[in-house]
């Protein structure tokens, strides 16, 4: 079922929804952007549909709702580690189609990789329902179509904002009673079918080619361009890495929190072990690691889709103006060449 609602009517209904749900959406934080007099658009709890920034791509992804930047795991004393508490209330999040795919990638990492599900991820993820926001034409750094993440059916509600009104598809039957007396409409969300950017994905056909990809001079070009700041991984919806550490509350250090904080494979200490030895010492090597994880390793491990969902936030947020789409296209060009060389060497035509 779908409905046409004025924003003020939607706010009345939202107020009712807020009795049972915590609702997150991209919000504008005026003048809180990286540069002076720029805004920051990131997720937070909304009180009104007018809070929602729907006509701009958020700078940070909705992953921080499910995989918080800083999350307490345990409260510890000398004698025990007690699991941290969590708000039991279910969560509604306004997201884009690519974000829903991105969160599916997080699901793979946190719920499927290894022998057991991550309990901290699961306890938040199980409570989350999606409200799909239409993208219209999308934005100039998006390449969801190339990544196959422009469409999804995995949502509870879908919304199109139209001035003082909105159109809402209610797919999840549990929400239907709330809208029972509203004016119905004929609405299904439309998806972006073409981006301004097209990205070709590298087709690494053999172990030998993979080794040559590792040795490409392409990566060294990032030694001078990339600052290793990790703005890309922080903005990324599918980057999942974290570091665990303990923080003491008390003077004697005997009680405190064990917490999880986002980590980035771009940071130079990401692989450093006790004693100081680390791997991937150059920005270029770390850029290679991130790139291949996004478009090769993840698929090699789990099959199916690539980890990157083409949201383009990494490009939007890079202070050095490194385009991930351009990086992938450069890489694909190099891989074509390596594949052709490999084929020529074995006498097989490509």
């Amino acid at each position: 079922m779908a409905y046409r609602l004025s924003l003020s009517r939607m706010d009345e209904l939202l107020e009712k929804m807020r009795e049972s749900y915590t609702i997150y959406a991209p919000m504008r934080f005026e003048k809180r952007g990286r540069y002076s007099d720029t805004d920051l658009v990131r997720y937070d709890k909304i009180r009104s549909v007018r809070d929602i920034v729907y006509d701009e791509k958020s700078h940070f992804s909705p992953k921080e709702v499910i995989h918080p930047i800083t999350q307490a795991l345990f409260h510890f004393t000398e004698f025990e580690y007690r699991e941290s508490e969590v708000d039991e209330r279910p969560v509604l999040v306004f997201v884009r189609p690519c974000d829903i795919h991105g969160i599916q990638r997080l699901d793979t990492m946190f719920l499927e990789n290894g022998d057991a599900a991550d309990p901290y991820y699961k306890r938040l993820r199980d409570k989350v329902k999606f409200v799909l926001m239409e993208c219209g034409k999308g934005w100039d750094t998006c390449f969801c179509v190339s990544m196959g993440t422009n469409r999804t059916e995995d949502y509870s509600l879908a919304v199109r904002f139209a001035g003082e009104e909105l159109l809402l598809e209610v797919k999840d039957p549990s929400f239907r009673p709330l809208f029972a007396s509203e004016k119905t409409a004929d609405f299904r969300p439309e998806f972006v079918s073409a981006n301004r950017l097209t990205v070709r994905l590298p087709e690494i056909k053999s172990r030998d080619v993979l080794e040559k990809v590792h040795a490409l001079p392409l990566w060294e070009s990032y030694d001078t361009r990339c600052l290793s700041c990790g703005a890309c991984t922080a903005a990324c919806v599918s980057c999942s890495c974290f570091t665990t550490s303990d923080v003491a509350y008390s003077e004697n250090g005997r009680s405190g929190d064990r917490r999880r904080v986002w980590a980035s494979c771009l940071h130079k200490d990401f692989t450093v072990m006790a004693g100081g030895h680390g791997f991937r010492k150059t920005p270029g090597e770390r850029m290679r690691f991130r790139t291949l994880h996004k478009v090769y390793d993840f698929r090699a491990r789990f099959g199916g889709a690539d980890m990157c969902v083409g949201c383009g936030r990494c490009t939007d947020r890079c202070p050095q103006l490194i385009s991930f789409a351009a990086t992938l296209n450069r890489l694909s060009g190099e891989v074509d060449r390596l594949n052709a060389e490999a084929a020529a060497a074995t006498g097989v035509s490509v």
């Binding site: 809180r32 990286r34 002076s36 940070f60 700041c229 703005a231 986002w262 947020r317 202070p319």
Partner: peptide
């Protein structure tokens, strides 16, 4: 100087408006 906000990858540092 707000250099901290300029380089912060997560938007943890922001300028007061």
């Amino acid at each position: 100087c707000a250099e901290c906000a300029t380089v912060c990858p997560t938007g943890a540092w922001t300028r007061r408006p």
